[in-house]
Nucleic acid binder design. Structure first.
Length: 260
DNA sequence: ATGCCGCCAACATGGCGA
């Protein structure tokens, strides 16, 4: 089963690119972040015509997440459990293929947190604490679990072109990275890192300052796997070529393939 | 120290992103 995550930066503005990528990449499951529309405005017909079922947790103008699947989607949860959130940043569901093992999938858009310190950074750290609590609960079920999305966290210096330039940014502050480690250390596997130990495997390049042609990127979009999912991991990758397309999102798709 | 670029709502330009 191929499972992918992509911060599309407006599904309406990006529709042609997203459909093109979906046809080429053919993921069984895709999680989108920053759809930037309410549920009724999501272009679901275009995806349903390609054989996908669609579940959204949308919001006007900002944020918004969606899960698409070629297999039945069950047990949908909208919003991070245990966290009263004004912003649409979390959707979770069970992907249940006929006659095959199910996979529980979380699609998340973690708060940016800038400027730090401040209210926005406090919100980010509180969100990460609530996510950790939710994942601890999910891990008790011992399922194949995929927790993926735009984490807005640069895990390590090897994941950023210029660590010094990002030292005081909410994405790279020690507190953010410590919260990331606490999450991973619950027993999750970073799918891309497990398959590729090379440094500088970026998933985001800013629109500004020629970041893409200079390869001034950061790795902030991640797929984390429970032990039961990690045992099935065949390959994982980053579709960096998509960043070069016309009217590209500033993020690119990240994917993994699980056996069975 | 700030803007760069792009999207949104809305119609001018400010909020937001990372």
């Amino acid at each position: 089963m191929k499972i992918a995550t992509w911060n599309v930066n407006s599904v309406k503005a990006r529709l042609d690119s997203v459909l093109t990528w979906m046809k080429q990449a053919e993921p069984d499951v895709a999680g989108f972040q920053e759809i930037k529309c309410v549920d009724d405005a999501f272009p679901r017909f275009e995806f349903e015509a390609m054989g996908y079922k669609v579940e959204t947790h949308g919001q006007k103008t900002y944020n918004g997440v969606a899960l698409l699947s070629k297999h039945p989607i069950e047990d949908v949860t909208r919003g991070l459990p245990g966290f009263a959130d004004e912003q649409a940043r979390y959707i979770e569901a069970l992907i249940a293929p006929k006659g095959k093992a199910a996979v529980r999938v979380v699609c998340l858009y973690l708060p940016n947190g800038n400027p730090a310190p401040g209210d926005k950074y406090d919100y980010k750290l509180a969100w990460m604490e609530a996510l950790q609590a939710r994942v601890r609960q999910l891990l008790k079920w011992e399922e194949r679990l995929v927790v993926m999305g735009d984490y807005n966290v640069i895990p390590a210096a090897e994941d950023v072109h210029d660590p010094a330039a990002w030292a005081k940014d909410a994405l790279f502050l020690p507190q953010s990275r410590a919260a990331w480690r606490r999450l991973v250390h619950l027993g999750l596997t970073d799918a891309v890192r497990a398959c590729n130990r090379q440094p500088h495997q970026y998933t985001f390049w800013d629109y500004q300052g020629g970041a893409w042609p200079k390869n001034n990127g950061i790795r902030i979009d991640h797929i984390l796997l429970s032990p039961q999912a990690a045992d099935r991991l065949e390959e994982a990758g980053i579709d960096r070529h998509v960043r070069g397309w016309d009217k590209a999102s500033d993020h690119v798709p990240v994917w993994c393939r699980l056996k069975g």
